[in-house]
Protein backbone atom coordinates (compact mmCIF):
# COMPACT_ATOMS: atom_id res chain seq x y z
CA UNK A 1 0.00 0.00 0.00
CA UNK A 2 1.50 3.29 -1.10
CA UNK A 3 1.48 6.62 0.67
CA UNK A 4 -1.39 7.83 -1.50
CA UNK A 5 -3.64 5.04 -0.23
CA UNK A 6 -3.04 5.79 3.40
CA UNK A 7 -4.17 9.40 3.39
CA UNK A 8 -7.77 8.72 2.28
CA UNK A 9 -7.86 5.92 4.85
CA UNK A 10 -6.90 8.36 7.60
CA UNK A 11 -9.36 10.99 6.41
CA UNK A 12 -12.25 8.55 6.11
CA UNK A 13 -11.77 7.14 9.62
CA UNK A 14 -10.25 10.18 11.30
CA UNK A 15 -12.17 9.56 14.54
CA UNK A 16 -10.37 6.25 15.10
CA UNK A 17 -6.99 7.75 14.32
CA UNK A 18 -7.69 10.57 16.74
CA UNK A 19 -8.60 8.24 19.57
CA UNK A 20 -5.60 6.01 18.96
CA UNK A 21 -3.23 9.01 18.98
CA UNK A 22 -4.78 10.34 22.20
CA UNK A 23 -4.59 6.91 23.79
CA UNK A 24 -0.91 6.60 22.93
CA UNK A 25 -0.18 10.08 24.32
CA UNK A 26 -1.83 9.04 27.56
CA UNK A 27 -0.04 5.71 27.70
CA UNK A 28 3.29 7.41 26.98
CA UNK A 29 2.77 9.85 29.85
CA UNK A 30 1.80 7.02 32.24
CA UNK A 31 4.91 5.03 31.41
CA UNK A 32 7.58 7.63 30.73
CA UNK A 33 6.85 10.57 33.03
CA UNK A 34 8.60 10.82 36.36
CA UNK A 35 6.15 13.12 38.14
CA UNK A 36 3.14 11.35 39.64
CA UNK A 37 0.71 14.14 38.74
CA UNK A 38 1.86 14.03 35.11
CA UNK A 39 1.24 10.29 35.16
CA UNK A 40 -2.24 10.91 36.50
CA UNK A 41 -2.93 13.41 33.73
CA UNK A 42 -1.73 10.79 31.25
CA UNK A 43 -4.12 8.30 32.81
CA UNK A 44 -6.99 10.73 32.37
CA UNK A 45 -6.11 11.37 28.71
CA UNK A 46 -5.99 7.60 28.19
CA UNK A 47 -9.47 7.13 29.65
CA UNK A 48 -10.87 10.13 27.78
CA UNK A 49 -9.63 8.70 24.49
CA UNK A 50 -11.77 5.61 25.04
CA UNK A 51 -14.77 7.74 25.97
CA UNK A 52 -14.35 9.69 22.71
CA UNK A 53 -14.14 6.41 20.81
CA UNK A 54 -17.47 5.27 22.23
CA UNK A 55 -19.11 8.63 21.58
CA UNK A 56 -17.94 8.59 17.97
CA UNK A 57 -19.27 5.09 17.24
CA UNK A 58 -22.80 6.25 18.13
CA UNK A 59 -22.74 8.82 15.33
CA UNK A 60 -24.52 8.34 12.00
CA UNK A 61 -24.11 10.81 9.18
CA UNK A 62 -27.25 12.83 8.51
CA UNK A 63 -28.91 11.71 11.73
CA UNK A 64 -30.20 13.89 14.53
CA UNK A 65 -30.54 13.79 18.30
CA UNK A 66 -32.43 10.73 19.59
CA UNK A 67 -35.48 12.71 20.70
CA UNK A 68 -38.67 11.72 18.92
CA UNK A 69 -40.39 14.89 17.73
CA UNK A 70 -44.08 15.71 17.30
CA UNK A 71 -45.27 12.93 19.59
CA UNK A 72 -48.11 15.05 20.92
CA UNK A 73 -49.36 16.18 17.54
CA UNK A 74 -50.63 12.78 16.59
CA UNK A 75 -47.63 11.85 14.44
CA UNK A 76 -46.05 9.86 17.23
CA UNK A 77 -47.16 6.56 15.82
CA UNK A 78 -45.66 7.24 12.42
CA UNK A 79 -42.78 4.95 11.52
CA UNK A 80 -39.55 5.81 13.31
CA UNK A 81 -36.46 5.14 11.21
CA UNK A 82 -33.47 4.21 13.33
CA UNK A 83 -31.23 5.73 10.66
CA UNK A 84 -32.67 9.20 11.37
CA UNK A 85 -31.39 9.23 14.92
CA UNK A 86 -27.88 8.79 16.30
CA UNK A 87 -27.42 5.81 18.62
CA UNK A 88 -27.74 7.04 22.22
CA UNK A 89 -26.66 3.82 23.91
CA UNK A 90 -22.86 4.29 23.67
CA UNK A 91 -23.31 7.81 25.03
CA UNK A 92 -25.25 6.54 28.01
CA UNK A 93 -22.64 3.87 28.64
CA UNK A 94 -20.03 6.59 28.72
CA UNK A 95 -21.89 8.45 31.47
CA UNK A 96 -21.10 5.44 33.66
CA UNK A 97 -17.54 5.27 32.37
CA UNK A 98 -17.05 8.96 33.18
CA UNK A 99 -18.25 8.31 36.73
CA UNK A 100 -15.76 5.46 37.01
CA UNK A 101 -12.89 7.56 35.68
CA UNK A 102 -13.71 10.49 37.98
CA UNK A 103 -13.82 8.13 40.97
CA UNK A 104 -10.48 6.56 40.00
CA UNK A 105 -8.95 9.99 39.49
CA UNK A 106 -10.22 11.09 42.89
CA UNK A 107 -8.73 8.08 44.69
CA UNK A 108 -5.45 8.54 42.83
CA UNK A 109 -5.30 12.24 43.71
CA UNK A 110 -5.97 11.45 47.38
CA UNK A 111 -3.08 8.98 47.32
CA UNK A 112 -0.82 11.57 45.68
CA UNK A 113 -1.67 14.00 48.51
CA UNK A 114 -0.83 11.30 51.07
CA UNK A 115 2.50 10.65 49.39
CA UNK A 116 3.33 14.35 49.20
CA UNK A 117 2.48 14.90 52.87
CA UNK A 118 4.84 12.12 53.90
CA UNK A 119 7.78 12.63 51.56
CA UNK A 120 7.39 16.23 50.28
CA UNK A 121 8.00 15.14 46.71
CA UNK A 122 6.04 13.64 43.84
CA UNK A 123 9.03 12.70 41.67
CA UNK A 124 9.08 8.95 41.37
CA UNK A 125 12.87 8.47 41.35
CA UNK A 126 13.23 10.50 44.57
CA UNK A 127 10.45 8.46 46.16
CA UNK A 128 12.19 5.25 45.22
CA UNK A 129 15.42 6.51 46.71
CA UNK A 130 13.70 7.50 49.94
CA UNK A 131 11.95 4.14 50.18
CA UNK A 132 15.10 2.11 49.58
CA UNK A 133 16.80 3.94 52.45
CA UNK A 134 14.28 2.46 54.87
Amino acid sequence: MGMTDIIPLIVAKYNYWLFVVLMMIGLYAMIAKNNLIKKLVGMNIFQTAIILFYVSIGYKSGATLPIIQNVHEGHGHAAIHAADYINPLPHVLMLTAIVVSVATFGVAMALAVKIYQRYHTLEEDELRMRLSEK
Binding site: M30, T104, L111, I115, K134
Partner: peptide, 15 residues
Amino acid sequence: DRGPLASLNYIFIGV
Protein backbone atom coordinates in the same frame (compact mmCIF):
# COMPACT_ATOMS: atom_id res chain seq x y z
CA ASP B 1 5.36 4.20 54.10
CA ARG B 2 4.89 2.08 51.03
CA GLY B 3 1.11 1.62 50.84
CA PRO B 4 0.15 4.80 48.95
CA LEU B 5 2.85 4.43 46.29
CA ALA B 6 2.11 0.71 45.82
CA SER B 7 -1.56 1.59 45.50
CA LEU B 8 -0.89 4.35 42.95
CA ASN B 9 1.14 2.00 40.76
CA TYR B 10 -1.67 -0.54 41.11
CA ILE B 11 -4.12 2.15 39.90
CA PHE B 12 -2.05 2.92 36.78
CA ILE B 13 -1.92 -0.72 35.74
CA GLY B 14 -5.49 -1.43 36.82
CA VAL B 15 -6.78 1.44 34.71
